[in-house]
Amino acid sequence: KILILDAKDEFAKQGLFIKGWETLYPEMIEFVKGSAGGKITRIDVAKKEVVTSSGTHKAHVINFIPPQKAGKIAFDAGLTKGNWCPVDFITFESKIHKDIHIIGDASDASPMPKSAFSANSHGKVCATAIAAAFSGVKMPEVPSYVNTCYSYVGPDYGITIAAVYTFDGSKIVPVKDAGGVSPAEASSEFRKREATYAEGWYKSIVHDTLS
């Protein structure tokens, strides 16, 4: 059995993941949300026990993911406010230190998720801003950002989420009706096609980012 203990009550594509687990791995995976006792308060490494508000759970293998925050280098450089780095959403320049640009997970670019695809989108906006600054050209006032994420629930079972974002003058906001998630009720053939698309998506984003 796999027990997922989460301090949060919700996560991206939650309904699709749970449906996939129930379809492929019935009664094998259990998700416990924070308000139902999923928040971890202590881990006993020697005993392989996880303590939560709902009780103690013993496991053969524990994969603990600590609360997320920007990397140590960002804190050491004084670029953070809270757990993340505040940035100008048009240039991704730090709001704390001029001429330092921060993209990806470390940046506070909510409501965009902290995904590699988001970081790729941030990078393109940031690179355009830096090139514009070097060339003395004005940066476009309303950049667009995008996120797409495919997930495998099984070898032939894929799900996806996508969204387009814009800048409203003060913050990043999703563009209405520009995106969505895989349908909750879909055929096995549809899930298989999504798994195939996922492979192409992965190759494309890796090539685009690293080439």
Results as ranks from 00 to 15, higher is better:
residue 60 H to T: 14
residue 151 S to D: 08
residue 140 P to C: 01
residue 116 A to F: 08
residue 70 A to V: 02
residue 80 T to L: 01
residue 198 A to S: 13
residue 95 K to M: 08
residue 166 T to P: 01
residue 73 I to M: 14
residue 2 I to P: 13
residue 193 R to V: 11
residue 163 A to P: 00
residue 187 S to F: 07
residue 114 K to N: 08
residue 206 V to P: 08
residue 96 I to R: 08
residue 202 Y to A: 13
residue 62 I to E: 09
residue 25 Y to S: 06
residue 44 D to Y: 13
residue 106 A to F: 07
residue 58 K to L: 11
residue 168 D to I: 00
residue 205 I to F: 15
residue 33 K to C: 12
residue 86 P to T: 05
residue 205 I to D: 03
residue 173 V to C: 00
residue 44 D to Q: 11
residue 82 G to R: 04
residue 23 T to I: 02
residue 85 C to R: 02
residue 186 A to P: 07
residue 135 S to N: 13
residue 93 E to V: 03
residue 40 I to Y: 07
residue 45 V to N: 11
residue 118 S to N: 15
residue 71 G to W: 10
residue 165 Y to T: 03
residue 47 K to L: 11
residue 138 K to R: 07
residue 194 E to F: 13
residue 97 H to K: 14
residue 204 S to P: 01
residue 198 A to T: 02
residue 105 D to Y: 04
residue 18 I to L: 15
residue 77 A to L: 14
residue 104 G to P: 05
residue 165 Y to E: 03
residue 96 I to Y: 05
residue 80 T to E: 03
residue 77 A to S: 15
residue 78 G to D: 10
residue 96 I to H: 04
residue 67 P to K: 02
residue 177 D to H: 11
residue 109 A to R: 00
residue 47 K to Y: 06
residue 139 M to L: 12
residue 66 P to F: 05
residue 15 G to I: 01
residue 152 Y to V: 01
residue 33 K to V: 06
residue 183 P to F: 05
residue 138 K to Y: 00
residue 13 K to Y: 07
residue 144 S to I: 00
residue 49 E to T: 11
residue 156 D to Y: 15
residue 47 K to F: 09
residue 150 Y to M: 03
residue 162 A to E: 13
residue 48 K to T: 12
residue 52 T to G: 04
residue 96 I to W: 04
residue 173 V to K: 01
residue 66 P to V: 01
residue 22 E to N: 15
residue 27 E to V: 02
residue 19 K to F: 01
residue 81 K to P: 01
residue 3 L to I: 14
residue 178 A to S: 13
residue 166 T to A: 07
residue 39 K to C: 08
residue 165 Y to S: 03
residue 202 Y to P: 01
residue 195 A to V: 09
